[in-house]
Simulated assay, not measured.
Amino acid sequence: MTTKKYADFIYKQTKGVYNIMIEQMFSDYVLYKDGKRIGVLYDNKLLLVSTENLNKLFPNAVQEKSFDWGYYKLIYIEDTEDKELLEKAIRTTYDDLYFQKDFVIDISYLFKVNKNYSDTIEKIYDLHITFLRFCYDKGLLKINPIDKQGRILHMRFLNNDLTENGTKIFNELHHKWLIYTDKNDGNTSERIGNVKMLEKYYSAIIDKIDIQK
């Protein structure tokens, strides 16, 4: 059994992590980040799913034997007073389990949604040619998704397809680009090829998060 007092303490220690949630399950609690399970609070102990990088953070952590969570192995995080280390442990567990496999964009889904609008599909395709080429040139994508004929080779992109800088920039840049190009007027063709606007958005994001261009 885990007390609410202990659950509240762990939440307080980890609330600096984006989208963290602790949900009661019978007499104990499940720990979630972005809606995905990363650990449990069991008998007033914090147990996180054992991953390669988490074990590097806690090389002496003990594997928990008394809690069965299917094929997951759990380790006991004894030091819960160090808030910074605890938040790092949460992020590390999530990243190892889920982050690299998370979808960033799925262009084919946009085609599916607009399947009855051929002009819109053509526009979506063309604006993504501009966007993906720009992202590769800026070192945000690991592999060039555009072939020599200017055709898109890959429609679905995971975090694993992004470089380190790409994981920090790609999603926000894509969102801004979609908003900018979401207009149908006499300037549509010019807009979807406007690399200068992409450069402007890119520079603003770079300055905000303070990384090297």
Rank of each mutant, 00 (worst) to 15 (best):
T3Y: 05
T3E: 09
K4F: 01
K4M: 00
D8M: 03
Y11E: 09
K15Y: 11
Y18W: 04
L31G: 06
D34W: 06
G35K: 08
K36M: 14
R37A: 07
I38L: 07
I38C: 09
G39M: 07
E52R: 14
F58V: 04
P59R: 07
Q63V: 14
W69Q: 14
G70T: 11
E78Y: 10
L85I: 03
L86H: 05
K88D: 08
R91F: 04
D96T: 09
Y98L: 01
F99D: 11
Q100T: 03
K101N: 15
D102A: 09
V104N: 06
F111T: 00
F111P: 02
V113D: 04
N114E: 10
N114R: 06
N116P: 00
I124K: 08
Y125M: 03
L127P: 01
T130A: 00
T130Q: 00
L132Q: 13
K138L: 11
K138A: 02
P145Q: 11
I146C: 11
D147G: 00
I152E: 03
R156C: 12
D161N: 15
T163H: 05
N165Y: 13
K168D: 13
F170K: 12
F170G: 06
W177L: 01
L178K: 08
T181H: 04
T181C: 15
D182Q: 02
G186H: 14
G193T: 12
V195P: 01
K196D: 08
I205R: 05
D207N: 11
I211Y: 11
